[in-house]
């Protein structure tokens, strides 16, 4: 259960490794010395109650929030991530809870948003190239539910939107994909689609971090489960050895190494 013991010899270097990440928003300690690692071809589930710090952690990895303390290692190398573009350059992609899609743009335009291909002296958008690559990516992921890549995403179903968001994330030779509650707003069939997609990402050799409230989903796709509670690591399981009851117990009552408020008191 502990991951402080050091890496056993022969175990490969994790693709993405976080060590002692802390982040505070004013007086609120959102993350406190969080450790995390994900390997290539693995799905790691990050679970925890509301306010456990899951989304903050994701945003820290993505470069949206600057961390106060701790280090991020990518393929064994220490890296500094100051913004979404830094993360993208490393091959870290995030699929956000709110999908981060612009409804007025079509599938291709969304998949390339912020990273459009341009051509010619006027740096005009290279629509043909972008469209082709979008189609190829969707095909690689066996996404067959989107019939037209020139449809505005406003007209897509929740599952289709999520597929676009995932495809958008893996288009960039990404190595690590972080998914924030990908099935939260989906129906049964659509959840199925997205979970299959998540599994396929890992099969293609990506490291996948999946945030979810839904333990059923987690047990279905994850290889390992890390539990956050009040911004701290409280437990880690191999899915094959864990039970839902144990995970729920960790989520709601996992032992904290640091009691919130303690630090402030010691200063007072």
């Amino acid at each position: 259960m502990t991951i402080e013991a050091g890496r056993p010899p022969g175990r490969p270097v994790p693709l993405l490794e976080l060590r002692g990440i802390s982040k505070a928003f004013g007086a609120v300690q959102a993350l406190y010395r969080v450790d995390l690692e994900v390997h290539a071809g693995e799905v790691l589930a990050l679970v925890g109650d509301n306010g456990a710090g899951k989304s903050t952690l994701i945003k820290s990895i993505a470069g949206i929030h600057a961390v106060d303390e701790g280090e991020i290692r990518f393929a064994g190398r220490r890296v500094a991530i100051h913004g979404p573009k830094d993360a993208a350059r490393l091959g870290i992609e995030v699929v956000y809870q709110d999908l981060a899609l612009a409804d007025n743009l079509d599938v291709v335009q969304n998949m390339f948003l912020g990273r459009e291909e341009v051509t010619g002296p006027l740096r005009a958008l290279h629509e043909t190239l972008m469209e082709r690559r979008a189609r190829e990516t969707l095909a690689t992921l066996s996404v067959t539910t989107i019939r037209s890549v020139r449809r505005r995403v406003a007209g897509l179903s929740g599952g289709q939107r999520q597929s676009v968001a995932v495809a958008k994330a893996v288009m960039w030779n990404s190595k690590v994909v972080l998914l924030d509650e990908p099935t939260a707003a989906l129906g049964v069939a659509q959840t199925r689609q997205v979970l299959d997609l998540v599994r396929r990402l890992a099969e293609q050799g990506l490291g996948v971090i999946l945030i979810s409230h839904n333990l059923h989903d987690v047990f279905e796709v994850a290889d390992r489960i890390t539990v956050l509670r009040l911004g701290q690591n409280v437990a880690e399981f191999r899915t094959s050895e864990a039970t839902q009851a144990k995970v729920v117990e960790a989520i709601t009552a996992g032992a904290l190494s640091h009691v919130p408020g303690q630090q402030e008191e010691s200063f007072a």
Binding site: I64, A100, L125
Partner: peptide, 28 residues
């Protein structure tokens, strides 16, 4: 007309107007 339809600048403006959060998360 050209800027709005065929440049990254124009495309970004559409994205910002529709979903400012998405624009930011996409590094615009």
């Amino acid at each position: 007309w050209f800027i709005s339809r065929y440049t990254v600048f124009g495309r970004s403006m559409y994205a910002i107007g529709a979903n400012p959060v998405a624009a930011r998360l996409n590094g615009i």
